[in-house]
Design a binder for these strands. Sequence first.
DNA 1: CGAGGTCTTGAAGACGATCAACAAACGTGG
DNA 2: CCACGTTTGTTGATCGTCTTCAAGACCTCG
Lengths: 245, 245
Amino acid sequence: MTDSATAAAALTAKLEVRDAVSPEEKAIIGRMFSDFRTIAAGDDIVRDGDRPTHSTLVVDGFSARYKVLQSGDRQLTAIHLPGDFVDLHSFLLKEMDHGVVALSTCRIATVQHTTLQHITQTQPHLTRMFWLLTLIDGAIHREWLVSMGRRPAIGQMAHLICELYLRLQSVGLTQDMSFNFPVTQVELGDLMGLSSVHVNRTLQELRASDLLSWRSQTVTILDWQRLEDLAEFDKRYLHLVKEPR
Amino acid sequence: MTDSATAAAALTAKLEVRDAVSPEEKAIIGRMFSDFRTIAAGDDIVRDGDRPTHSTLVVDGFSARYKVLQSGDRQLTAIHLPGDFVDLHSFLLKEMDHGVVALSTCRIATVQHTTLQHITQTQPHLTRMFWLLTLIDGAIHREWLVSMGRRPAIGQMAHLICELYLRLQSVGLTQDMSFNFPVTQVELGDLMGLSSVHVNRTLQELRASDLLSWRSQTVTILDWQRLEDLAEFDKRYLHLVKEPR
DNA sequence: CGAGGTCTTGAAGACGATCAACAAACGTGG
DNA sequence: CCACGTTTGTTGATCGTCTTCAAGACCTCG
């Protein structure tokens, strides 16, 4: 499969979970990506303050949005899986107000903003689908706010695992109850607003309760029901429902 | 001024901060609202689980998005000022994954989703402006994630005050360095993921440092520079820049 | 003037941070 | 394929921020 076809397939898969994608739309998506590149883990995909002329899609690998404070403390505000745009919002926001870092080696593809502009002029339904993608980003942000504000660390961790499992499952990246998740405990801490030491202890608690196992970057959920209960996980916020939009 | 004109003016003001609005677009906005209502403080404007057939704009008053956990703990995930849509996202997300509550008495107006649908079919630029509004919501969510995850309570509080000041100023609702903010300390706690007791002590600290005063719902910023420094506030995330979108 | 809500204060305790050290795993080059 | 260096994970001890609980003061509004 060509790079272009792989990128298109990843995006189309994500869209088709939520609505029908017409042959014409598939053709447009099939032609829209260019500039395929591989980014090393730890490198920036987009930098804070940039004014990109294109938006970037993750074709393979994990990346994250982040902001850094003067103290050096870092907060990751979103995590991107294959098929996710890392900065579709830069099309209209123009200036990046955060960076995007590759958490693992990432294969990426880009769409020119001029192409997106043309789509908004001629493809109302496809425009709404892209708008929808950014709305789901927002819904996830809200759920993370609840996790950070009101869930204890173990509930927050459980919630994150539930979310990742469903998001990965929706794009075919789970095997039974497990998935690959190549992040360190420091990164997990930056994701959840915790110290890496506390992440470590929280994970031990989850393992001791036989809720999950996590070895060599593979997470296996051992008891979905109890994990979901612990997290008070309600998947409606992921909007994994296929209907006309 | 009629209800319809007031709603249109509030929305247009917010849009014109970020991009030019054409006469035709103004005319469309002038006709799009209906169903003007007043909501009492504490009442829901939209309920979790609803499938609205319209989106709601706050014309006057303060409201907030929220989720509630089984423990009864509540987290507010966004605050809406006059001119803000509380659920523009329901147009595409379809099902509400959170509630929206009036923090003060609110005057609201609604737009039918069929009207929004028609706009997306015929008004590409206006569609992008509406999309932009939801993207700014997302940018604010991200900044709040940083606040909750990595800022101490006093920095988080300072950051919130800075944000509110600029957002209110951009729609003409500040007087010099002060603004009306009708929320209780319990609600502030729900906003920031803190207990009301800690909110109280944090506010005392801000007052003792002569950074702000807060009496009878009026916040006055006494030293913007030091407040901004304390918050590490960088207003770029509000995207208060007028440019073609 | 009374009543309910809101703010304030104190005391005690929990959750998570920090610091420091060591163990384990990984990957890189020889 | 082993050796070594670096990154990552783990543990213990101590500290600090924020929570909880409880009571009293204040304020607002009917």
